[in-house]
């Protein structure tokens, strides 16, 4: 006998947009676009008593409704049950033991960072993910000095951006073997675009990019390629800013900032500790800007999986849409 209720798996979460909607699968890391009428049914009438829903719709819509539920069942987005009360929604609260979870460190030829001290401080704050972006050529010795400081720390993943250098490139490729914390190595200003090692092939991806990434202004691109679909980021996006929450940055000149692209400095790394900065209310202010508050994005179906950017916004407004996003949720099209 057919069960009465259709229930979405708790990890498949509908998000309504202006013209269309998504079901975000935070377990398997994918999403499906669905029409707004279906999202309406799935949010307003969940758990879905399909015969009751049909009773509220004209007969000619019933076939469409049946197709919707078949589609969702076939893609394992939901299932049928007589006991919907046993299947609660996911709790989307966000908790982290770290006061800082992620950090950016920028480096150019004039930088004079004390890596050991910076890493010590990040470690103390509980930082897990670190991005090091080198805009100019680094010789292997400099890199070993920097990366050698990272072993045996709580920082668990490091993404490294380097400038391609013909003389050193083979040594660069060896870095992931020497430093287990490296999860991504990108060489900019390369002769050609090339994937040297994908993240499936090893613990660290190695990618060559033709583009010259010679300063922080290259950051802040919004693209489906960067969408992040997992439960921690999805729940974080409900309450906090997807890019800046619990982030701290040290720019190439040593200024402590939310992000290297933002003008406001909270002091120089040689004069202020990262902890002192993290304790300032001012510093944490952008952490709480959610996509639900940002112009345009608040109507976008991608708002909880999109990476956001507060460094470059439309009209440089605090709540402006990310300037480097070409998506228009009112038409449903990428420009």
């Amino acid at each position: 006998m057919k069960k009465k209720f259709f229930v979405l798996y708790a990890c498949c979460i509908p998000v309504k947009g202006y013209t269309r909607s998504l079901v975000c699968d935070v377990q398997r890391g994918s999403f499906k676009l669905i029409p707004n009428e279906l999202a309406h049914v799935l949010t307003q009438h969940h758990p879905c008593d399909v015969s009751a829903i049909k009773a509220q719709h004209p007969v000619e819509d019933h076939e469409t409704l049946d197709e919707y539920f078949e589609f969702l069942t076939a893609h394992e987005y939901g299932f049928w049950t007589d006991h919907p009360e046993r299947f609660p929604a996911l709790d989307l609260t966000y908790q982290s033991a770290s006061s800082i979870t992620n950090a950016i460190l920028d480096v150019d030829q004039y930088s004079n960072h004390n890596y050991e001290s910076i890493f010590d401080q990040l470690e103390f704050l509980g930082c897990k993910d670190l991005q090091i972006r080198c805009y100019t050529e680094m010789n292997p010795e400099q890199l070993h000095q920097m990366l050698g400081q990272l072993n045996l720390r709580r920082i668990k993943s490091v993404e490294l951006l380097l400038k391609y250098a013909e003389a050193y490139v083979s040594q660069y490729y060896q870095l992931p073997q020497q430093y287990g914390r490296l999860v991504s190595l990108v060489l900019h200003t390369s002769p050609k675009n090339q994937v040297i090692q994908s993240s499936q092939e090893g613990h660290c991806q190695i990618i060559c990019l033709q583009q010259a990434i010679d300063d922080e202004t290259h950051c802040g691109q919004i693209s489906p390629l960067y969408f992040s679909l997992n439960l921690p980021t999805f729940s974080e996006a409900q309450h906090y800013n997807s890019c800046l929450h619990r982030k701290i940055s040290v720019d190439k000149a040593g200024n402590i900032k939310n992000c290297p692209s933002m003008p406001k400095s909270f002091g120089h790394i040689t004069e202020q500790s990262l902890l002192e900065v993290v304790q300032q209310e001012d510093f944490k202010q952008p952490w709480g800007i959610t996509k639900d508050e940002v112009e345009v994005c608040r109507d976008c179906e991608f708002r909880y999986i999109c990476t956001d950017c507060r460094g470059y916004t439309k009209g440089e407004r605090k709540y402006g849409k990310p300037a480097k996003c070409s998506y228009d949720p009112y038409t449903g099209e990428w420009a």
Partner: peptide, 11 residues
């Protein structure tokens, strides 16, 4: 590839 669906539950 397609891990089993796992969801919170109420006993």
């Amino acid at each position: 590839e397609r891990p089993n669906r796992v969801v919170p539950y109420v006993l």
